[in-house]
Amino acid sequence: MIRPGLLLRLVVFTALIAFLAMPDRFAGLLAPLTDNGAPAIYNQGSLVSLTLSHLFTVALATSAATIVAVGLAIFVTRPAGAEFLALSRAAVNIGQTFPPVAVLALSVPAMGFGEGPTRLALFLYGLLPIFENSLVGLSTLPPAVVESASAMGMTGRQRLLKVELPLAMPLIIEGIRLSAVIGLATATIGSTVAAKGLGEVIVAGLQSNNLAFVVQGGVITGILAVLISDGFQILARRTSKRRGASPQASRPATDGQQAPV
């Protein structure tokens, strides 16, 4: 049986693909939002290629952030890195009070305009939720389970790969989800520093007073964000279901759990 929520998402996804494939067919829908015969469909570049480069920027930054953040979380939860644990926690807490848009803006003086600062900002900010979640995941494993792994004769590496990482995976995926959602939003703002992406459509609309542009840019990014977030949530639920962890229904929002950008 297909749940209504899933069905709705499938419909929305299909509509998104249809719109990106042949936007002109939808011109009639958006025309009421324009004045004086201004174009209803963004005409300064292909929506498909903007969407793809937007997604590429996010994917690149999020993958890099995942590798580095999970690596760091592993490091500070090993005996060798334990010295850095308390500080890294504090640093993440402080880092998460920085608005992503400020991080983006501040990376412009360091990197110049274009894709560079956007990717740097996405990467830097994306580290935080992944690191925090991985850290929580790796440091709150049931002690009896971790000890059993050692007691069975697993080496440190086997214990990490066979037990600790798989058990922390739902939380790590949740961190990646947050990072991707934040990244998608920050990349939208990245258009103001000349990164190629869907923000361009919104910015163009705001500059030329063309509401149709603003709305189509906003709706595409909004739908992408919701669908990507859902995808990660399904993945996280899959990895945690088997072991009987209760689904994380309505738990409190805490730092970095979910933050619009």
Binding site: A151, V163, R243
Partner: peptide, 17 residues
């Protein structure tokens, strides 16, 4: 050493996954 010695504890420590 540990692979050659069995170890069982109260909270059993079974791998949940």
């Amino acid at each position: 050493l540990r692979r050659s010695i069995g170890y069982a504890i109260q909270s059993h420590g079974l791998f949940p996954h």
